[in-house]
């Protein structure tokens, strides 16, 4: 493929294939936000989070819960609504280069999704184990739960659905139908949130002691497996990208 003068000009003018700034900004956004959260729980967990009947608990924790739920609903609707509203109605007729660019943008979303899953399922979930050693658990809404269940889980859910929506509305690869593993990778971890209902219900009449391996928690385990479905997404993506690169890579 000889580069014509025109295409060189087009190169200079067009957007880069991967917008690195968005990628790094995405990663830094989660890191900065969760660093703040970690600081917040470090300070107000100890000063206001040990007794759920104390007025300061209402101020620092219950209010945080109310605010985060409202913000999450708005973000969920806003982000997904925006992606849907600005969907590409001629997605099958984009140029290969544009398709490649969109795969990069899609992967920027997926990188953020993986990152958000790490914070939710690993960092804040195991953290729960140690906080419940420290307090006498006197409410469903412990500081650790307010962050784990009602902040970090919704955030990865929002990130996951957004990335799914992006793929569905902008990439030719996903026009065939619904990608089963992609659905599982997004809906499985999502189901962890409703499973909180089972968890809290169980803890209302079961012991308030902290046994992580209790069968009551197995619902989380089952839905956690769904994270593996990211492998199906990876495979589909690799196949699609291979199609775009194959002849140039040979």
């Amino acid at each position: 493929m000889a580069a014509t003068t025109e295409s060189v000009k087009a190169d200079a003018a067009e957007a880069p294939l991967l917008n690195q700034r968005n990628l790094w900004a995405g990663i830094a956004l989660y890191l900065a936000f969760y660093s703040f959260i970690r600081w917040y729980e470090g300070v107000y967990g100890w000063s206001a989070g040990l007794d759920s009947f104390a007025p300061e608990f209402e101020t620092y924790w219950m209010n945080m819960l109310y605010i985060e739920i409202v913000v999450e609903v708005i973000l969920f609707a806003g982000i997904n609504g925006y992606i849907w509203k600005t969907r590409d109605r001629k997605v099958m007729s984009i140029t290969p280069r544009e398709e490649l660019r969109r795969h990069f943008t899609h992967w920027t979303w997926l990188v953020c999704y993986g990152w958000a899953i790490y914070w939710g399922a690993s960092y804040f979930t195991e953290q729960d184990g140690t906080w419940h050693q420290t307090i006498v658990r006197d409410t469903d809404f412990t500081p650790s739960h307010i962050i784990e269940f009602y902040l970090s889980y919704p955030i990865y859910i929002i990130t996951g659905t957004a990335s799914f929506m992006y793929a569905k509305t902008r990439l030719p690869t996903y026009q065939e139908g619904l990608h089963l593993m992609y659905l599982i990778a997004v809906i499985g971890p999502f189901m962890i949130l409703p499973n909180v209902g089972l968890n809290e219900w169980g803890h209302t009449f079961w012991f308030m002691e902290e046994l992580f391996v209790a069968p009551l928690h197995y619902g989380f385990v089952f839905f956690g497996w769904a994270a593996l479905a990211v492998m199906g997404v990876v495979n589909t993506e690799v196949m699609a990208i291979t199609k775009l690169l194959k002849k140039d890579l040979a």
Binding site: A28, L31, S35, G42, W46, D51, I135, V136, D138
Partner: peptide, 29 residues
């Protein structure tokens, strides 16, 4: 950008070790 990233990491680590000295209890439940 790089320096801000490092600063972010440092402040994150520092934040995690900030230890306030106040408390309450947690019975009555």
């Amino acid at each position: 950008l790089k320096l801000s990233f490092i600063a972010l990491l440092i402040s994150m680590t520092a934040a995690m070790f900030y230890a306030p000295t106040a408390s309450a209890h947690g019975e009555k439940s």
